[in-house]
Design a protein around this nucleic acid. Structure first.
Length: 509
RNA sequence: GGCACCGUAGCCAAGUGGUAAGGCAGGGGCCUGCAAAGCCUUGAGCGGCGGUUCGAAUCCGCCCGGUGCCUCCA
């Protein structure tokens, strides 16, 4: 299969060949753990999950790593050289308030002033959400999903090497900066080459630190700072590492290579983060590339607009699953599908309508599988990539993860009569290894999707009501039958009557 | 100002040179006590203007619109 991906580095779609087949090494820029991740974050992480699952299905051995950024960075984006308030302090304050109001269990974070506890709390929450959404990587925590604070030594080693190789210098302000002038390739990824970078155009650099640098684009690797909450000893004084160095260090450490196959991260990471990562990593290793392919999913909008705190559209996974958008509990498989169904290189629009569409799709897929299961009568077989549906699905994805074309193959397939349910079941499960929505499975293939239990669910006995409907219908008491059905629908059930009787299932969204 | 990405029916979205996939919603029909689900059926000339070509949504140019980035936001 010819796999083609759009490579941000070359601005072109190119054939993808692993460096060491069948292994493929992927590094994904993960979340910061000072707060809950929102659905926009997860779109980006689920893109990397789709990539992982597709390459695995295509027969490769995917080695995938991700970081959790828990070094307390600074709040003031407009003073990006490291000023403002430590994000860990903000998180601590938020957690204290949440504990007071009961929004967070008192036992969840013993001491909000301990940044490690704060980070652990949000990291745990991130992994839980990732598991609900069926992200393979979540089951590799903590092996392949690693904390920055556990790798300070590796970062310092890289910084040391950069200083030795004259790619970095200690400036008058005591800060260790990367010297972009020493790396002519700077700008290759983003197109923001040194000559084109207008000083401070993004409004995030403070004049104070600019003065100490050789070039305005120089970025810090280590900053001695006695006021930083989390700090570590170093040859350059007690302080904390720069943002970019953690990914260089951890990718090399966890993936055990100086050059990896694919690096992913949200589009906002292209510059400066990934540009700087390349400069640092290649500065240390002397290789031409750090990652052969760079892939960047685009941002998520909510109801046609940028996500916004003031509009309350920074939805967390829990928000959406508890019904903040649709008004009723939502199946995690639906959220997963909603976040992966749009091509990763297009902005996607997260909407209530979209969630309902996705719920329909997920339900259709699950019912198709259930029918196959019934038709297969416990027989099991295996199919490979030559099965027409699987082949069509995989070749669509091989074209830069063309999920829409891939889904078209699935829809056309499942709307046709199935000649051999046993074979079709095997084919479907292969496809679902990638989609992972019908059902959502954990690392061992066990189903993980459970609707959040709504409060009134316990009071309702859907089976009894269904029996009541059937009895009323048998007695031609349609008024009673309709009333019972309305009650079920009002509680979020989908009611179907067939010659075999009435069934009620929870709506997925 | 610079560097990129995107612009196809009400919505989501494929197609990258030969007369527009697929899904959702909507209309009509079958089924149903009525519904739901399912099945059948139904709709656009591709942001605009030029150019290349026998032929362009697809290539080139310009313009318009949206988005991201220009130092710690996925």
């Amino acid at each position: 299969m010819d796999i083609r991906f759009y490579n941000t580095l070359t601005h072109q779609e190119r054939s993808f060949e692993p460096l060491e087949p069948p292994d493929i090494r992927i590094y994904t820029c993960g979340p910061t753990v000072y707060d809950f991740s929102h659905v926009g974050n997860f779109r980006s992480f689920l893109f990397s999950d789709l990539l992982n699952r597709f390459l695995t299905a295509a027969g490769y051995n995917v080695i995938h790593a991700m970081n959790l950024t828990d070094v307390g960075h600074m709040t003031e984006d407009d003073v990006a050289d490291g000023a403002g308030e430590d994000k860990m302090a903000v998180a601590a304050r938020r957690l204290k308030e949440a504990k007071k109001s009961g929004a967070v269990d008192a036992g969840a974070v013993e001491d909000p002033d301990n940044p490690y506890e704060v980070a652990r709390y949000y990291a745990k929450s991130f992994i839980e959400d990732a598991k609900k959404l069926g992200m393979k990587l979540a089951w590799d925590y903590p092996g392949k999903v690693v904390h920055a604070t556990d790798h300070i030594t590796e970062m310092q080693q890289l910084i040391q090497k950069l200083v030795e190789r004259d790619h970095a210098y200690v400036a008058e302000d005591g800060v260790v900066y990367f010297d972009v002038g020493s790396f002519p390739e700077y700008g290759r990824l983003s197109g923001n080459d040194i000559a084109n970078l207008k000083e401070g155009e993004g409004g995030r650099i403070s004049a104070e630190h600019q003065a100490a640098k050789k070039h305005p684009a120089d970025f810090f690797l280590w900053k001695p700072d006695p006021h930083h909450i989390m700090k570590w000893d170093s040859p350059w004084g007690a302080g904390y590492p720069g943002w970019h160095i953690e990914c260089s260090a951890m990718a090399m450490k966890v993936l055990e290579r100086e050059v990896i196959d694919i690096h992913t991260g949200g589009e906002d990471n292209i510059f400066p983060h990934h540009e700087c990562e390349i400069a640092q990593s290649c500065g240390v290793t002397g290789h031409e590339d750090f990652a052969r392919f760079w892939m960047h999913p685009r941002h998520l909008f909510v109801e046609g607009e940028k996500m916004s705190k003031s509009k309350g559209t920074f939805y967390t996974v829990s928000d959406v699953m508890e019904g903040k958008v649709t008004g009723r509990p939502l199946d995690p498989g639906v959220l997963r599908f909603e976040l992966i169904k749009t091509h990763y290189r297009a902005n996607s629009n997260f909407t209530e309508k979209g969630l309902h569409d996705s719920a329909n799709t997920v339900r259709r897929l699950r019912e198709f599988r259930q029918n196959l299961l019934a038709g297969a009568d416990s027989q099991v077989t295996e199919v490979d990539g030559s099965h027409p549906a699987v082949e069509g699905f995989l070749s669509a994805l091989a074209d830069d993860l063309n999920i829409s074309a891939a889904m078209a193959v699935v829809f056309e397939w499942i709307s046709q009569p199935v000649p051999d349910p046993v074979e079709a079941l095997a084919a479907f499960d292969l496809i679902n290894e990638i989609l992972n929505v019908a059902p959502v499975s954990d690392a061992t293939g066990k189903e993980v999707d459970l609707l959040v239990r709504s409060k009134d669910e316990s009071k309702l006995d859907p089976e009894a009501l269904c029996r009541g409907i059937d009895e009323a219908r048998a007695a031609k008491d349609y008024a009673t039958a309709d009333a019972l059905r309305d009650e079920l629908v009002a509680h979020g059930y989908e009611v179907r009557t067939s010659p075999q009787g009435t069934t009620a299932t929870r709506m997925l969204a």
